[in-house]
């Protein structure tokens, strides 16, 4: 099996000498294509930090990140931007969307950055809205969508660029538990149908139950790594 994500001895420290916090302490993980991985652990255990490093949004103090075999530390600023655009989908906890764009325009925008031709953009937007169950709501601006619907648009946007992996930092944290579970089901479905690799963090027991792999973080280190 190919590893879409591979980290080697990731070290990330914050603060200076006396107040130094080791957010990640030599973390090595390998994630295969098609896995549906949850990163769990108490607050401050390093979940967000790990996702940031994997997504190239932050740089480690030591160790390296390989995405589909490429070492992201060797990329220039623009290369990394382009790599994120083409290979990584992001879903954030909240405020994912550009408020002045409608749902479908939000989804279209990332494809525009990729240079996807207009006709294909349009048809993919339609497909994505269907996949996340938002058909008919494409014209609405984020302010006129519920939190759950906004997160579905974020999922659709992440999918639209046809990335290798989708990283999501507590995507359900701002949703009530029913809506959160529904969002997870959408993600899981995409994972199964399209073999899309998902890595997400969560505090919620019901959410982790749906993962196929659980990586437990504790004080910046992997305490347990279980596949179901």
């Amino acid at each position: 099996m190919t590893n879409v994500i591979e980290t080697k001895n990731l070290l990330r420290k914050f603060g200076s000498d006396e107040t130094e916090i080791i957010a990640l302490n030599k973390v090595s993980v390998e994630i295969e294509k098609g896995e549906f991985t949850a990163i769990i652990g108490p607050s401050g255990s390093g979940k967000t930090t790990l996702l940031h490093l994997i997504g190239g949004l932050d740089e480690p103090d030591d160790g390296s990140v390989f995405l589909s075999g490429a070492n992201i530390a060797e990329m220039s600023g623009n290369e990394l931007s382009d790599f994120r655009r083409d290979h990584i989908g992001f879903i954030f906890q909240a405020y994912n969307l550009i408020p002045v764009l409608s749902a479908q325009e939000n989804i279209e925008y990332i494809m525009l950055l990729q240079g996807v031709p207009a006709a294909e953009r349009k048809s993919r937007v339609g497909d994505m809205l269907n996949l996340v169950g938002l058909e008919g709501l494409g014209d609405r601006r984020p302010a006129h969508l519920s939190g759950g619907q906004q997160q579905r648009v974020a999922v659709a946007r992440a999918m639209a660029s046809q990335p290798d992996i989708i990283l999501a930092d507590e995507p359900t944290a701002n949703l009530d538990s029913k809506t959160g579970i529904a969002l997870l089901d959408v993600m899981r479905e995409l994972n199964e149908k399209q073999n899309m690799t998902f890595v997400f963090s969560t505090h919620d027991q019901k959410i982790m139950d749906r993962a196929t792999r659980l990586i437990h973080l504790e004080d910046g280190a992997i305490e347990k790594d279980e596949r179901k």
């Binding site: 382009d82 994120r84 990584i88 992001f90 954030f92 405020y95 550009i98 950055l113 946007r157």
Partner: peptide
């Protein structure tokens, strides 16, 4: 918003 745009791959 700009942070999100940068994250999803918009160049500076």
């Amino acid at each position: 918003e700009f942070g999100v745009l940068r994250a999803i791959g918009a160049r500076p």
